[in-house]
Computed example of a mutant assay.
Amino acid sequence: MMIGQLIEKEQIPQFKFIAAPEDKSATFKEKLEGALRLGNEFKAKTEISFQTDSGPKRIETTVWSLTDKYLQIKSGVLIPLKSILEIEY
């Protein structure tokens, strides 16, 4: 079960990202690459939980791109990897 309040991806700009209690970006690297492949090749959605100043939030979205510090979703929205709590697909 994913943690965080489910929000629409369009609501993300209303929140300020903060670092998760534990930076798991290195641990999530393989899972993030899988989410990227699913999004680009199959248009499949990934559920992502992340930390904000208003508490944990989660979205269901397609991952468009991935860098060392961010993942990008639709409309150029960037989510810092250090804020990610969980990833499921």
Rank of each mutant, 00 (worst) to 15 (best):
K43N: 09
S54H: 12
L32W: 11
L66I: 07
I18W: 04
E86D: 07
I79N: 03
I18M: 09
P13H: 13
E8A: 15
K16I: 14
G4I: 06
L71N: 02
Q14C: 14
T27Y: 10
S49E: 04
G34A: 13
I12V: 14
M2P: 05
T67K: 00
S49L: 05
K82D: 10
P13V: 13
G55D: 05
I87T: 00
L36M: 12
T52D: 03
E88I: 08
S49N: 06
E60F: 08
L71W: 01
K31M: 15
A35Q: 02
L85W: 02
F17W: 08
A44D: 11
S75Y: 07
P21D: 12
M2A: 15
L36A: 08
D23Y: 06
E30T: 13
G55R: 04
K9A: 08
P80A: 04
E47K: 11
Q11F: 11
S25N: 11
T27R: 11
S54G: 10
T52I: 06
E60S: 13
Q14G: 14
A26Q: 15
I12F: 06
E86F: 03
E33V: 14
P13A: 14
P21H: 10
I18S: 05
W64A: 05
Q11Y: 12
P80I: 03
P56K: 04
E41K: 12
K82N: 10
N40E: 10
S49H: 01
T46V: 11
S83A: 14
L38P: 01
E22F: 10
D53P: 01
M1F: 11
K9N: 10
E88W: 07
K9L: 11
Y89E: 10
L6Q: 15
F15L: 09
P21Y: 09
A19D: 14
T62Y: 02
M2R: 09
T46S: 15
M2F: 15
E41G: 04
I48A: 02
P56A: 09
T61K: 02
T61R: 01
W64N: 04
E60W: 03
K57S: 00
I87D: 00
P21F: 08
L71D: 03
L36Y: 08
S83R: 01
K24E: 09
Y89A: 10
K45G: 06
E86W: 03
E47P: 04
K69D: 13
I87F: 02
L78R: 03
K43I: 07
K57A: 03
N40Q: 12
N40Y: 08
A19F: 09
E8H: 15
S54T: 08
R37C: 10
P13S: 12
L38A: 15
T27H: 12
S83E: 00
F28A: 06
L36T: 06
E8G: 11
F28G: 01
F42W: 13
K74N: 09
A20L: 14
E88C: 13
T46E: 02
I12D: 01
W64Q: 07
E47I: 07
S25H: 06
I7Q: 04
Q11M: 14
P13T: 14
V77F: 01
G76A: 07
I3V: 15
S65Y: 02
L6S: 15
L78K: 08
K45I: 07
I59C: 01
I59Q: 01
P56T: 04
V63A: 02
L38I: 13
K9G: 03
K57T: 02
E10A: 13
